[in-house]
Design a protein around this nucleic acid. Sequence first.
DNA 1: GTTCTGACA
DNA 2: TGTCAGCA
Length: 121
Amino acid sequence: MSVFPIGTVMKLTDLTARQIRYYEEQDLIHPERNDGNRRMYSLNDIDVLLEIKDYLSDGINMAGIKRIYELKEVEKEKKMMEHTKVMTDDDVRRILHAEFLSVSGFSGNGPDQSMNPSRMI
DNA sequence: GTTCTGACA
DNA sequence: TGTCAGCA
């Protein structure tokens, strides 16, 4: 995913190396490191840097920008929880259906174990 | 030639 | 943030 050296990112974002490294210190971007300890930025990193530049031009300071991305991560965690909840409910539905078939005599092997929710975690 | 870390008139 | 030093 990470393919751009800092020099390319500088031209693409019109930011100085000093700024780019500083935003990394603020945990706004997380470039990988290659064998030579060189930072390699992903397309997503470029995207975030451009967003940061917009926020800055709108008069938002680093504290504010950091808050924005912190909230964004909280929302991301919430969505992950929602996703987990949906999967659990879906498993329950499938399990109940499997038990229904078993009790109804359509299956003599009991609930389908492939529907066991423990396999989804 | 390019990037890295650390430091500061 | 800019910039310079001293490495790799």
